[in-house]
């Protein structure tokens, strides 16, 4: 389902501020699994997540997602692949504050041939499922942290992706809201989605829904714990 082969990512290559964020990582995540990339800040877990999520290309090595090598795709095709198959949940939520909840959720569908009515219908279904249907016309700046994250989840799901990646999803949530988040992830896992989470929150990586934990340090994969 997801496979990395000797994947390396270097930022600012050849410049004085060159950083090797990921060094020769090889791993495999099976379809329908919940995987956690665990490690301290600067361990390379977010970078690896962006490579798996097709938001960046590796400097060397190969990345396969859904059986397709995405590491060599030109930007246009990589973007399209990401739009069609990957849902991203950001640490900072990255919502657009002046837009309403509904408008934020449909953003990934704008550069597609989806009709606005259909896009809104899909978004409303997701908001209903996440208990936010009554807030659909609110501006996101009027929402609580937990609600903002649920909007971000709805936005990540609106394209009906097979793979969901989440970067430190519980960093800004209290324990109760973090529990709600994991419950939603559990439902998505039951629907057959593959979920990859970068985190150092024990609430997440110790949760029973996690199938595999990849420990990272200094850009290297140091341990794999399959449950």
């Amino acid at each position: 389902m997801i496979r990395c082969e000797k994947t390396t990512k270097v930022y600012n290559r050849g410049k004085p501020n060159e950083v090797v964020a990921v060094r020769g990582v090889s791993l495999e995540i099976r379809g329908g699994e919940v995987a956690v990339l665990r490690g301290p800040s600067g361990s390379g877990k977010t970078t690896l997540l962006t490579l798996i999520g097709c938001a960046a290309r590796p400097t060397s090595g190969r990345v396969f997602v859904l059986g397709r090598e995405v590491s060599r795709l030109p930007e246009r095709f990589l973007t399209r692949f990401r739009r069609e198959h990957v849902g991203i949940i950001f640490q900072q939520f990255n919502l657009i504050p002046e837009l309403s909840v509904l408008q934020n959720v449909v953003i990934p569908l704008v550069p597609t041939p989806t009709r606005p009515e259909e896009a809104e219908e899909r978004a409303m279904e997701l908001l209903e499922r996440l208990g936010l249907e009554h807030r659909h016309h609110f501006r996101v700046r009027e929402l609580s942290g937990g609600e903002m994250q649920r909007v971000a989840i709805a936005r990540a799901l609106v394209n009906q992706p097979e793979v969901i990646i989440a970067d430190e999803p519980t960093a800004h949530l209290d324990s109760s809201l973090a529990g709600d988040f994991l419950e939603i992830m559990q439902q998505l896992q039951n629907e057959g989605k593959t979920i990859v989470i970068a985190t150092h929150d024990p609430l997440v990586y110790e949760h029973e829904l996690v199938d595999v934990v990849f420990d990272m340090r200094d850009g290297r994969l140091v341990e794999v714990e399959r449950r």
Binding site: E75, T79, R80, I88, P108, V110
Partner: peptide, 15 residues
């Protein structure tokens, strides 16, 4: 920032 978000959500440079 908004352009960055759009790109991350699957908008291409052309879009």
């Amino acid at each position: 920032k908004e352009i960055g978000i759009l790109k991350a959500l699957g908008w291409s440079t052309e879009d």
